[in-house]
Design a protein around this nucleic acid. Structure first.
Lengths: 111, 111
DNA sequence: CTTCCCTATTGACATATGACAATATTTAGA
DNA sequence: TCTAAATATTGTCATATGTCAATAGGGAAG
């Protein structure tokens, strides 16, 4: 495999990794309706402030969100709204997977 | 946030997590052209057999691949080809991100 | 039934990750 | 300048992850 391909895949893996946490997915969920400041995430995701900052930093490092200071507050927003399409597609996969499994269970119960 | 929503997000995070490794992305790359047995992944991804098996197990646990025994060999395939669309979309995001960054560097160099 | 493949599993180890608490930093306003 | 508010960073701890080496399991062929 070409070296450049490998490097791209490493970057992809990093972004997938940034998406691989329920709290960070919740943060992104909150960002669907636009920019949001840190203090607004806290009640929404139900986590400590330091924890929220930490996970925001991970999303930022992966290039998924960017931020801007506004006085005391820091407002975060998604850098590329396509990230939501990716999450939506994955959700479809997860749900169809669940359906497949429950069908299988039904089949097994019949016997 | 509704409990069911949270559970879905946990499942999503698990699938994203399964995608969050270069070796596993390479394995999936190999699966684009259809099913493949373990011994064929080994030279392709350049890893030890036990390591490949391990990562295949992670992909399987996440529901991304399934497998079937054929004599001595075990053949793996993707359970839902939509996973490739997800990877492709993420790759686009990564690449446009890279472009954005390099533009920024160019701008900065001008000054 | 013995031996040889192919694959999966296990153990050991180093490293990464996540949660929480405490503390530092930055900015606004008195 | 001093204080308070919002956010980021740090340290500590427990747990998870990834790699390698060794071993186990299970089917095929003789």
């Amino acid at each position: 495999m070409a070296r450049q391909r490998e490097e791209i895949m490493e970057l992809e893996a990093e972004v997938f990794n940034a998406l691989a946490h329920p709290l960070r997915l919740k943060i992104l969920e909150r960002l669907r309706s636009g920019a949001c400041c840190v203090c607004n995430f806290i009640p929404y995701v139900g986590a400590e402030q330091s924890n929220v900052s930490h996970h925001l930093a991970i999303l930022k490092k992966a290039g998924i969100v960017r931020c801007e200071k506004k006085g005391l507050e820091v407002w975060y927003e998604v850098t590329d709204a396509n990230i939501f399409k990716i999450i939506d597609m994955l959700e479809e996969c997860v749900i169809s997977n669940l359906k497949r499994k429950s069908e299988l269970l039904k089949e097994m119960a019949k016997r």
